[in-house]
């Protein structure tokens, strides 16, 4: 096959590319989340009495659960940039934060008086929460999708979704230090919804951008 031999001759003269360094990619990904969050908190500040609030055992979950999800997702994204990698059963690790969040929600629903259940939900608080998480996610999603393109992900949609999940849950962990609504019925629902929206958008973007 003459043509194929020509192609090989042409390709073999091209310069080498620098090897993929997942650790460096992971650092940049983490930074792309940290920088917008740090700016947000620098301008608006953390909530008053953060330390005191954390003495309520439910409140730390607002930050810890998204943080765990974020760390898991970045690790998975970094694994999936190798073409031979498969996520498969590893995705079950998400059952841990998911079940914890579900337990918080159900616990709060059962323990609260019916009138107090959804007291903190107002159009304003929703806008603030959803809007902040969505806006803060834009930069990290963009940066991370670009970084994943340097690799060779063979499941573009899943990789895109995990990028969105990393970005949104990381941003949510930071935002939770500002947010004063400690009712799990509020934060599990709306943090979850915001993270889900970003994940779906990023999956759609990944489907188109991460092909090669």
């Amino acid at each position: 096959m003459m043509q194929t031999d020509d192609l090989i001759a042409r390709l073999s003269t091209e310069a080498v590319q620098t090897a993929l360094r997942p650790a460096r990619l992971g650092m940049v990904m983490a930074l792309s989340i940290l920088v917008p969050v740090a700016l947000f908190l620098a301008v608006l500040g953390t909530r008053h009495g953060l330390m005191l609030a954390w003495s309520n055992p439910v409140v730390p979950f607002k930050t810890v659960l998204p943080l765990i999800t974020c760390a898991l997702s970045i690790l998975l994204v970094l694994r999936l940039i190798r073409p031979e990698a498969r996520a498969g059963a590893t995705l079950w690790v998400y059952a841990v934060p998911l079940l914890a969040a579900l337990a918080l929600w159900i616990g709060a629903f059962v323990l609260r008086e019916p009138s107090a259940r959804f007291a903190e939900v107002s159009a304003f608080s929703l806008d603030e929460c959803l809007g902040s998480i969505l806006l803060l996610s834009i930069v990290p999603v963009g940066v991370m999708l670009r970084l994943v393109r340097e690799g060779a992900a063979t499941s573009p949609t899943l990789s895109g979704a995990l990028v969105g999940l990393s970005a949104a849950s990381g941003v949510t962990a930071g935002y939770s230090l500002f947010c004063t609504r400690d009712n799990p019925l509020f934060f599990v629902t709306w943090y979850g919804a915001a993270i889900l929206i970003v994940t779906l958008i990023s999956a759609a973007l990944g489907r188109r951008m991460l092909r090669w």
Partner: peptide, 25 residues
Amino acid sequence: VLLGIHLKRHTWDAAHPLRPWLYAI
């Protein structure tokens, strides 16, 4: 396929076997 291998040749981790990488691409 050859072009794909060429463009992504830096994604092979030399610490891992080559064949799974090659077949995946």
